[in-house]
Amino acid sequence: MSDTRIPKFVSYPLIALVAVVAVWLGVWLSLQNSGQSGVPEEMEATVLPEPRELEPFALQDHNGQPFGLEQLEGQWSFLFFGFTNCPDICPATLHTMKSVWQKLPTEPGEPGHPKLFFVSVDPDRDQLDTLKEYVHYFDPSFVGVTGKLDEIDNLTGQVGVLYGYDDKGSDNPLDYTVNHSGQVLLLDPQGRMRAVMSPPHDSTTLARNYQTIINYYGD
């Protein structure tokens, strides 16, 4: 009776092996055929399975010019949200982004170079000229952005960034702190959200992830 079972023991692993090979082949072929789909592997960043289109929003850049979807188009963009009264993560992240710039093959302003937008979620204290001087300290190509709270909420809501105020309403109305998401977001040249990079941020990792993503999806 055991000799009827032996072929089964042999055949199950075989069938399994064939199945595994077939699946791998299928995955490999589908990747070969459509370079734009799926997500690159071996990433410290979270790449969205599908790019996320954004609805229009109306903010201002540090020169008082409109900042909306249009300003995100034409180049890859990094977005980071914070406030200038932030002693630790905001200056550290902007410094990290400056180091990312130094690790990229292109110079700011050149075709193919990304932009960095620092969106202040503290418009009561962060005036446009304050923001400008703040971001320019790190790199003259960085752009400060802020605006009305409902338009900030419009953007943060769409990209999944959270923020909130602590101690607002204490004795000194300007004495409060802002809690905010520490993620750096990456948007493609169509202004669609592509990836989220979580703190702690490291310039080598950010630069490598960025290169991997743009090589994968193209410019």
């Binding site: 200038t84 009264n85 002693p87 630790d88 200056p91 304050t130 703040y134 320019h136 300290y137």
Partner: peptide, 12 residues
Amino acid sequence: SPEAPPTAPVMA
């Protein structure tokens, strides 16, 4: 202490 941007009201 990291030098801060000129307009920064706080340092670490």
